[in-house]
Amino acid sequence: MKKMILPLFALAALASCQEEKKPAEAPVVAAANTENKTEAPAPAKAMPDQATMEKNWKDYMTPGTEHGLLAEAKGDWVGEMKMWQAPGAPPDSSTIQQENRMLLGGRYQQSIAKGNVMTMPFEGISTVGFDNHKKKYVSTWIDNMGTGVMNMEGSWDATTKTINFTGKMINPATKAEEDVRETFTILDKDHHLMTMYGTGPDGKEFKTMQIHYTRKK
Rank of each mutant, 00 (worst) to 15 (best):
V78W: 09
V78H: 08
V78K: 13
G79E: 05
G79K: 06
G79W: 07
G79D: 05
K82I: 07
K82N: 14
K82P: 04
M83F: 13
M83Q: 11
W84I: 03
Q85M: 15
A86C: 07
A86I: 04
A86S: 13
P87W: 14
P87V: 14
P87Y: 09
G88Y: 15
A89M: 08
A89S: 15
P90F: 14
P90I: 07
P90Q: 09
P91G: 10
P91H: 10
D92K: 08
D92A: 12
S93R: 06
S93P: 03
S94R: 05
S94G: 07
T95Y: 02
T95G: 10
T95W: 07
I96G: 01
I96F: 14
Q97K: 14
Q98E: 15
Q98W: 06
E99G: 06
E99M: 07
N100Y: 09
R101S: 15
M102S: 03
L103A: 11
L103F: 02
L103T: 08
L104E: 11
L104K: 13
G105F: 04
R107L: 10
R107W: 04
R107K: 13
R107Q: 06
R107M: 12
Y108E: 11
Y108S: 10
Y108H: 14
Q109G: 06
Q109K: 14
Q110D: 04
Q110M: 10
S111F: 01
I112Q: 10
I112D: 12
I112F: 05
K114I: 08
G115Q: 01
G115N: 03
N116R: 05
N116D: 08
V117A: 00
V117D: 00
V117M: 12
M118C: 00
M118H: 05
M118W: 00
T119C: 02
T119P: 02
P121I: 00
P121Y: 01
P121M: 01
P121L: 00
P121D: 03
F122D: 02
F122T: 02
E123R: 06
E123N: 02
E123Q: 12
E123S: 04
G124Y: 02
G124N: 03
G124L: 02
